[in-house]
C-alpha cells in the first residue's frame, strides 16, 4: 500500500543498544531523604530529541541532571540503579565526572554567559581542557556559533562582552559554549522559558538542527513546545515514569489516562 507520509521515529521497543544514547535502569534518587525518582527505566534514542513533561516537582529536572551527575552537587543525595551512556555506566567509581560533563552538555533555564567576551565564552571549556592553539580555537568558535545559529549576528563583535547580547542571543551563546566541546548529549532544562515566542521558535528550530550531531534531552513546562520539538516524550508524575513513547503517539493517543488528563489540562 502506498505510504504518503514517512515517519522518522522508531518504536521504542525496537530500539537496539547501538541506537540508544542513554539507558536508564531502575534508577531511583533521594534528595534530603525524600524519594524524588522511583525506579525509572528508559532508553533515550541516539540523535533524537526526547522531551520530559510533568508537573513541577515531578522529578524531570532531577532525572535530567542525573545524566551528567549534576545532582551530586547536592550533599544529601542518594541514588540506586544505573545510567548507561553509550553502554558505559556513568555511575561507576572510575568515572571522570569533569570529562563526563563535557560529553553531556547542559543548558539551563536562564542564560548564564560568563562575564567575558563572546569568543572567550565559547572557548572557555576548551581552554580549561588545555587547548591553546589559536587557529583551532578560532575554527571551533566559528563552527559552534554557526551551529547555534548565532554566527551571523556576532561575527563582527566576537570580542565584545557577552553580557551585551539579548536574552535569546545569550541562550544561543550558552548552547554554542556547550557545542564547542562536541558533546554526545545535550541536556536542556527549560531553555526557552525566559524568552519571547519568536526567539523561542528560533531556538526550537536550532534544537531540531542539533539532533543531527548529538542526542538532545529537553525538559519543558510548555506542553506545546514538547509536542512541537520532540521525537519522543516521557511523562513523569511524582517520581514515577507514567508513559514514554514517540511523541506522535503520546500527543494524539496516549496509552495512559493519567497522561491524557495531563496533556489535555484536566489534571488535578
Amino acid at each position: 500500500m502506498l505510504k504518503l507520509f514517512e515517519t522518522e521515529t522508531l518504536a521504542l521497543s525496537e530500539l537496539t543498544e547501538k541506537q540508544t544514547a542513554i539507558h536508564v535502569k531502575d534508577f531511583s534518587v533521594w534528595l534530603n531523604n525524600n524519594a524524588v525518582l522511583n525506579k525509572i527505566s528508559m532508553r533515550i534514542p541516539k540523535n533524537k530529541i526526547t522531551a520530559m513533561i510533568g508537573q513541577s516537582g515531578c522529578g524531570k529536572s532531577t532525572l535530567l541532571s542525573s545524566f551528567n551527575r549534576m545532582n551530586e552537587l547536592n550533599q544529601k543525595y542518594a541514588y540506586e540503579g544505573e545510567v548507561l551512556l553509550h553502554g558505559r555506566n556513568i555511575y561507576n567509581k572510575k568515572e571522570n565526572v569533569a570529562k563526563l560533563r563535557t560529553q553531556v552538555g547542559m543548558v539551563f533555564q536562564r542564560p548564564n554567559p560568563f562575564p567575558m567576551s563572546i569568543y572567550e565564552n565559547v572557548c572557555f571549556g576548551l581552554r580549561i581542557q588545555g587547548e591553546t592553539e589559536r587557529r583551532m580555537l578560532d575554527d571551533i568558535v566559528e563552527k559552534s556559533l554557526r551551529n547555534a545559529a548565532l554566527w551571523d549576528e556576532v561575527k563582527d563583535r566576537l570580542f565584545d562582552s557577552a553580557l551585551l547580547l539579548s536574552g535569546g542571543q545569550q541562550q544561543r551563546l550558552v548552547i554554542a559554549r556547550a557545542l564547542a566541546l562536541n558533546p554526545e548529549v545535550l541536556l536542556l532544562d527549560e531553555p526557552t522559558s525566559a524568552l519571547d515566542p519568536l526567539t523561542t521558535l528560533h531556538i526550537e528550530e536550532l534544537i531540531s538542527q542539533l539532533k543531527k550531531s548529538c542526542t538532545v534531552v529537553i525538559v519543558t513546562h510548555n506542553m506545546q513546545q514538547a509536542a512541537r520539538v520532540s521525537d519522543y516524550a516521557v511523562f513523569l508524575h511524582q517520581g514515577e515514569l507514567i508513559e514514554y513513547s514517540d511523541s506522535d503517539s503520546l500527543f494524539t493517543m496516549p496509552s495512559k489516562k493519567q497522561t491524557e488528563d495531563y496533556i489535555t489540562g484536566r489534571y488535578g
Binding site: M1, L2, K3, L4, F5, A227, R228, D248, F251, T252
Partner: peptide, 19 residues
C-alpha cells in the same frame, strides 16, 4: 481509502503537535 485514513491521521498529528 487508505490514503484518506493516512491523510486524516497526519492532519490529527499536525494539529496535536503544531497547534
Amino acid at each position: 481509502n487508505s490514503m484518506e485514513v493516512q491523510i486524516d491521521d497526519e492532519c490529527m498529528r499536525i494539529i496535536a503537535k503544531r497547534n
